[in-house]
Nucleic acid binder design. Structure first.
Length: 293
DNA sequence: CGCCAGGTGCTGA
DNA sequence: TCAGCACATGGC
């Protein structure tokens, strides 16, 4: 079974940090699908052991998907600007921002708006079962993510039947934009953050937050800083008595954390979602002094 | 049951 | 520019 070097990587935190919705854990292994390749991955110390159903999926692809080529220590040093993010880094060091397929990321985060993660996972799973190509690896059976061309040909009614609700027409319209190249995702790879985001905003149902998620998780745009309700809670730490709008939080974060603020966002998001739920139903008590560092 | 969820688009000041 | 509102659905 092949393995790759992955020093100080946090596989399970990475896959459970809300940036990807299709990985499952079973018997100590993580099962997922990247492109047409079913993957079975597990971390053993500083190595990542894996198997794949697709011979064309190489070690280089695995390293790219998990962004193992990026110098994480340098990135974390650059965003380690205050006690709150310092604590998040201390707890979840090794969490990385994945490099996911742009179309899958766009479609997934259109589904993610005003929604909860459990239901997002269900919606995407049903989409893949209905319109994706089957893949299997040993006992694991799954489906590739449906292409834009395939989803462009599906009726809104069918998407609603999968539980997508009012997002159904948004997804269908985005699939059409991508399928007939009015939104050329391949071309966007060569653009910077602002241009990438502007292009994504052309999709109905894609606003600032979703565009930032797609730029960050699908286009390696680490200057993106998605602000959802959880990030509003985390950002209260910096805006104690100031009026907050998502636009202000976004601008502040870019100044405060710099060009890798997207990484800061991912650590803070994961962190605030794991604060003591009983004592802290809305995750409001962030970085209190006695939490230690 | 009510509240909430990785928000967005539209409307009216 | 910004607040207020509707929007589908299901987990908890």
């Amino acid at each position: 079974m092949p393995d790759v070097s992955a020093p100080a990587f946090a596989l399970r935190e990475t896959l459970a940090s809300g940036q990807t919705f299709r990985w499952k854990e079973h018997d100590g292994w993580c099962y997922g699908i990247a492109g047409a390749a079913a993957l079975k991955v597990r971390q053993e110390g500083d190595r990542l052991r894996y198997e794949t159903s697709d011979p064309a999926f190489t070690e280089a692809h695995l390293r790219a998907y998990f962004a193992l080529d990026l110098n994480l220590e340098e990135i974390l040093d650059s965003i380690d600007r205050d006690i709150q993010v310092h604590q998040a880094i201390a707890r979840y060091r090794g969490l990385r921002v994945l490099r996911q397929d742009p179309w899958e990321t766009l479609a997934s985060f259109i589904c993610a708006s005003f929604n909860n993660i459990t239901r997002i996972e269900g919606m995407i799973e049903r989409l893949c079962q209905a319109f994706g190509d089957p893949v299997s690896l040993h006992g694991f059976r799954g489906f590739g993510f449906p292409t834009a061309e395939r989803l462009a040909s599906v009726s809104e009614r069918r998407l609603r039947a999968l539980g997508l609700g009012y997002r159904a027409p948004y997804l269908r319209a985005a699939a059409r934009l991508v399928a007939d190249r009015r939104l050329p995702l391949t071309h966007l790879r060569r653009l910077g953050y602002e241009d990438t985001k502007r292009a994504l905003l052309a999709c109905d149902g894609v606003g600032d937050k979703v565009a930032d998620c797609v730029a960050l998780f699908g286009f390696e745009q680490y200057a993106a800083f998605p602000v959802d309700v959880w990030m509003e809670r985390a950002m209260r730490y910096y805006f104690r008595h100031r009026r907050m709008t998502r636009g202000r939080l976004h601008a502040y974060a870019q100044r405060h954390f710099g060009p890798y603020c997207g990484y800061a966002q991912q650590y803070l998001y994961h962190h605030v979602r794991h604060l003591r739920p009983s004592a802290n139903p809305r995750g409001e008590c962030v970085a209190s002094a006695r939490d230690g560092v």
